[in-house]
Amino acid sequence: MHKLKLHGFNNLTKSLSFCIYNICYAKTKDNRENYINHIDEQYNADRLSEILTETCSIIGASILNIAKQDYDPQGASVTILISEEEINPSPNSVVAHLDKSHICVHTYPESHPADGLCTFRADIEVSTCGLISPLNALNYLIKQLKSDIVTIDYRVRGFTRDAEGIKHYIDHQINSIQNFISEDIKQCYNMMDVNVYQENIFHTKMMLKDLDLEHHLFDTKPEQFNHEEKEDVICKLHDEIKEIYYGRNLSKI
């Protein structure tokens, strides 16, 4: 692809935001408590830091600073300041110029006793300035968080000037976030776009096509349910996934 010859630094801000959900059924109160503990352990601040550090490597960014926090009773957050260029400050120096780029994640595990459903949600934002692109981390992040539902927003803000002084409001070709999602992931999901091209705003929603009951049960096995119970659990899982995907509650009639 032809590269723009810019006047100075690339001032475009490229922001990629995820909302990722994983749904499961936990039959008893103890099962639900164990699920929350399991999620808190599997996606604690240290583990999330590892995932985001690898994300930085994938998009070609240098890490300036990592801030992380585990919460009581549950959840975790990590924020990483990043730079497009490699920076090796001396131990006593202060980094005065940042590329105004960051990666952050917040987690929200929850459950409800009424129907036994447990939901793990992770919000992730990858925001970059310069030539590095957050779109390169799409497939890695979707796979790392074992996603049943994914909503993705991508927006390019601001402008940069070329050597002739002409403003450019985007510096790459894109007509859908799906252009950057691998074929093996696409085959697993139903996908829908809502794009506002004149504003450089792109939105894609993804919902897992096939529900494997064994992979959506926590601390129990399918053989522990009779036929009617299995059908009830599958129905609950399907309804939960569809409600989150479409952003509205389904009629219970």
Rank of each mutant, 00 (worst) to 15 (best):
N10G: 09
N11M: 14
N11L: 14
L12A: 06
T13A: 07
K14F: 06
K14N: 07
K14D: 06
L16N: 06
S17Y: 05
S17W: 03
F18P: 02
C19H: 05
I20A: 01
I20N: 00
I20R: 03
C24S: 08
C24Y: 03
C24T: 10
Y25W: 07
Y25N: 01
A26Y: 08
T28L: 11
N31V: 06
E33K: 11
E33Q: 15
N34A: 15
N34F: 12
N34T: 08
I36Q: 03
N37H: 04
N37E: 11
H38N: 07
I39F: 00
I39Y: 01
I39N: 01
I39S: 02
I39Q: 01
D40A: 01
D40M: 01
E41F: 05
E41R: 06
Q42A: 11
Q42I: 08
Y43H: 05
Y43T: 02
Y43K: 04
Y43S: 03
N44L: 00
N44K: 02
N44V: 02
R47Y: 07
R47F: 06
R47A: 10
S49W: 08
E50N: 13
I51L: 10
L52I: 12
E54Q: 14
E54Y: 08
T55K: 04
T55M: 07
C56N: 14
C56D: 05
S57A: 10
S62M: 11
S62H: 14
I63L: 12
L64D: 12
N65Y: 12
A67W: 09
Q69C: 09
D70N: 14
Y71W: 06
Y71A: 00
P73V: 05
Q74S: 15
Q74R: 12
Q74N: 15
G75L: 01
